[in-house]
């Protein structure tokens, strides 16, 4: 199973989030809550699913709510590897 660094995971989250929100990655703030972007819960679930496939392991979608920013989620997923 490939191991990813926190920076790699952060980049993957940013790419998925930008795609879900249809915005440029450069406009994202890694410390801003997903909620503040107005990300609907099902889109958050699809984002978790994309990360699941990127990391090659299953992710509890609740992680999106427990670690609700790019930075927090990346740290969580890197440490839980």
């Amino acid at each position: 199973m490939p191991a990813f660094s926190e920076a790699e995971i952060r980049a993957a989250i940013r790419a998925s989030l930008a795609s879900a929100l249809s915005v440029a990655e450069s406009t994202l703030d890694d410390d801003r809550d997903f909620d503040a972007y107005g990300l609907p819960s099902l889109e958050a679930v699809e984002l978790a699913g994309e990360l699941e496939d990127f990391l090659g392991r299953e992710i509890d979608a609740e992680a999106i709510f427990d670690h609700p920013s790019v930075a927090q989620l990346a740290r969580h997923l890197a440490s839980a590897a």
């Binding site: 819960s41 099902l42 958050a44 679930v45 699809e46 978790a48 699913g49 509890d60 979608a61 609740e62 999106i64 709510f65």
Partner: peptide, 8 residues
């Protein structure tokens, strides 16, 4: 996606 929707 449904697995994630059941998660939350």
């Amino acid at each position: 996606t449904s697995a994630g929707a059941f998660d939350i």
